[in-house]
Design a protein around this nucleic acid. Structure first.
Length: 243
DNA sequence: GCCAACGTTGGC
DNA sequence: GCCAACGTTGGC
């Protein structure tokens, strides 16, 4: 399965004149989110979301993205928080999430929906997520983003040249979803994975807020729910010296 | 670059 | 539906 991580949207377009990405050399194109982002200030649609009929009632999230260049089927999948900031409206669609299986501890339940996808679909307008840099020298939480468009079909699944092309997905019944996220702010300081892990270890013994953090207990999930306690605790770390 | 953890696939 | 083999994630 492809990596359920973030990459720039719109990569189906051939490198066109609008290709002036942050690093200049990527073959990725700008994301087409402009169109979708205006949902932001429209609240008319009582999104199906507001029914909160799902089992995921989390209001906070952690989203992983690769912060260093890496080619996947010839496409650079790098998308750091700086790249997000450089987008129009500082907004990008979160495509490429392909995570089909639901695994909890030793009990493996095959869900008709993938876990990361379920989480994507549970994300609601204005909810906040930590932007996590993965697969890089210093992994950790770089900043805060918010959901500005709820789940809609991930266009990359229909694009033959996209690393996330899924020939088994049909236009009239898309398998994969994505959301749009907008940059909110950088963390006051970068919260490293190592620091989070130190707290996680300590909290396992003391029952502290990070004792069950998904980053460690479900390490391969690209989109993870955070509890209020986890979110608040991590925010509080900003004000402290790195431990 | 290595490799542990864990998600996915396919034979049965 | 089980589970061994394989593939991927992602920290180190």
């Amino acid at each position: 399965m492809p990596r359920p991580r973030k990459r720039l949207a719109g990569s189906a377009e051939p490198a066109g004149p609008d290709n002036k990405g942050p690093a200049g050399k990527r073959t990725k194109t700008k994301n087409p989110v402009g169109a979708s982002a205006q949902v932001v200030n429209s609240s008319p649609q009582k999104t199906s979301a507001s029914k909160t009929c799902g089992k995921y009632l989390s209001s906070y999230w952690l989203m992983k993205s690769e912060a260093e260049s890496r080619l996947e089927k010839g496409v650079d999948v790098k998308f750091s928080i700086e790249d997000l900031k450089a987008q129009p409206k500082q907004t990008a669609c979160w495509d490429g999430v392909r995570n089909y299986q639901w695994v909890r501890r030793k009990v493996v339940v095959y869900s008709p929906l993938g876990q990361a996808r379920n989480f994507l679909r549970a994300m609601k307008l204005e909810q906040e997520a930590f932007f996590y840099h993965s697969n890089c020298k210093e992994p950790g939480i770089a900043g805060l983003v918010k959901i500005v468009k709820e789940a809609y079909p991930d266009h990359t699944q229909f694009e033959k040249n996209n690393p996330h092309y899924d020939p088994s997905s049909k236009e009239d019944n898309p398998k994969w979803s994505m959301v749009d996220v907008q940059f909110v702010r950088m963390m006051k300081r970068f919260i490293t994975l190592a620091e989070l892990k130190t707290h996680h270890q300590a909290h396992k013994a003391t029952g502290g807020p990070l004792k069950n953090m998904a980053l460690f207990s479900r390490q391969r999930l690209s989109i993870q729910p955070l509890t209020q306690e986890e979110f608040d605790f991590i925010l509080s770390l900003e004000e402290k010296e790195p431990s």
